[in-house]
Computed example of a mutant assay.
Amino acid sequence: MNAPVIGRKLQSVENGMFDHPEFRGHEQVVFGHDRASGLFTIIAVHDTRLGPALGGCRMWAYASSAEALTDALRLSRGMTYKNALAGLDLGGGKAVIIGDARSAKTPELLAAFGAQVDRLGGTYITAEDVGISAPDMEIVATRTDHVRGTRATGLGDPSPYTALGVFCGIRAALRHRFGSDSLEGRRVCVKGLGHVGMDLAGQLHRAGARLVLADIHKPTLEDAAARFGAEVVAADAAHAADVDVFAPCALGAGLNDETIPQIRAGIVAGAANNQLAEERHDEALRERGILYAPDYAINAGGVISIALATPGGDDALVRSKVEAIDETLTRIFERAERLSLPTQQVADTLAEERLAAA
């Protein structure tokens, strides 16, 4: 995909912004390009009622600019709800960079992205996400102060805290479903062994879970399987594994019309963002009797760490707040059961109540 073609596509989707199915009252959507580095980025600011919009930057080889825009709009809205539900005084935003992170990412491109963030004057605060690492954020920070997750702004890489929050959330789901949060002997399928998924797999293994693992990168999968004594399944079949818990930790939209009827787990609880392909799929999960941990509630550990960390400080406050994800999910599960509502709808309501109060 060459630069002139991308440029024309970006212009066409920008012109139709307000008709986009994922546009939900976004305050600002910025299309950025840097000729010298080849940067093409979209920064979406969804809501700043609680504070500046905080959300990571994702670099991905999107099939089209329209696909990138859809991801930015959905992810930024999810960050609004995630930050609200986590009790943070921050709004929601997200950035995407169009390109293959393995081959197209350069220091010049990252610096150019930092300059794009800086032009927003603090309305949007960036951090790492899929395809963008903590060292990458150090480069971004050379061009803007509106960045978190660096050594200068706190605890660095947020992925261990995301993994901790998901681990706590899985235990909350087990307790609600089975009356005990013990993982001893429980079968858990982790799909996606990036930084978060691998860390989560390690925590689950140490807690006594029997793991089933899936990842598109074969060497990573084989290494993890050997380390944890785990079974291996194909990535496109992970959702149908015969397990107690399915933990999607890769990309979103994996819970859809095709996969939901095939799920054998009683619990879906993982780190991936935007797991539901469409909002109606939360009801589809409920109708099948599957307990779903809303993604932005269970995976908030990373954003909590970059929001609350202080330079040179310890992580006691952060860990305490992340471990409280257990309590948040318990509240969601109990209200959903009492009102016979899908858990995502209940989580949305709780987040919207806080936004309305602001």
Rank of each mutant, 00 (worst) to 15 (best):
H20S: 00
G131A: 12
A141W: 07
D199C: 14
P52S: 07
K105T: 06
V5I: 15
A214F: 01
D47T: 05
A72S: 11
I263R: 08
A237N: 12
A316E: 11
E287H: 15
R338T: 11
S320H: 14
Q262C: 01
R148N: 07
S180R: 12
I298A: 01
R286P: 01
A141S: 11
R286D: 03
L355T: 05
A201E: 09
H46P: 09
H146E: 07
R286S: 08
E353I: 07
G51N: 07
A347H: 11
R335I: 12
T259N: 13
A271F: 01
R177V: 11
R74V: 08
I132R: 09
G87P: 13
C57L: 10
V346A: 07
D244I: 04
N273I: 10
R186I: 04
A240M: 02
G194I: 06
L85G: 01
A104W: 03
F246G: 01
L276M: 08
P107Q: 08
C168S: 14
L39P: 00
D89T: 13
V166K: 01
L276I: 06
N274A: 13
A277P: 00
D314Y: 12
K321Y: 13
E334V: 09
L317I: 09
Y161R: 03
I170Q: 05
Q28G: 10
Q344M: 10
G92T: 03
R331C: 07
T259V: 14
F228C: 02
V5Y: 13
M17F: 10
I43C: 00
L308D: 10
Q11H: 14
D242N: 10
C168L: 14
I132T: 14
R58D: 11
Q116G: 07
G78Y: 10
L276G: 05
L69Q: 03
G121T: 06
T80G: 09
C249V: 01
N299Y: 06
I98A: 07
D89C: 08
M137Q: 05
D34S: 06
Y81S: 11
R227K: 12
E323W: 09
G92I: 03
F333R: 08
H46R: 01
S159E: 02
T142D: 08
L120M: 03
A235G: 12
C189S: 09
R175H: 15
T310Y: 09
V140H: 08
D71N: 05
A163C: 02
L276K: 10
V212F: 07
A241D: 03
A152N: 15
P4C: 03
D215C: 05
D145Q: 13
A36H: 14
D129G: 04
E22L: 15
V196G: 00
A134R: 14
A309Y: 01
G25E: 05
L183T: 03
M198I: 11
T123L: 15
A269L: 00
D47E: 08
G270K: 02
A293V: 06
G16I: 02
L255E: 02
T123K: 14
G92F: 02
F31N: 09
C189N: 06
Q203V: 04
K94M: 12
G32T: 13
S65G: 15
G7W: 14
R35N: 15
V130W: 04
P4F: 09
V30R: 10
M1G: 11
I42L: 09
V196C: 04
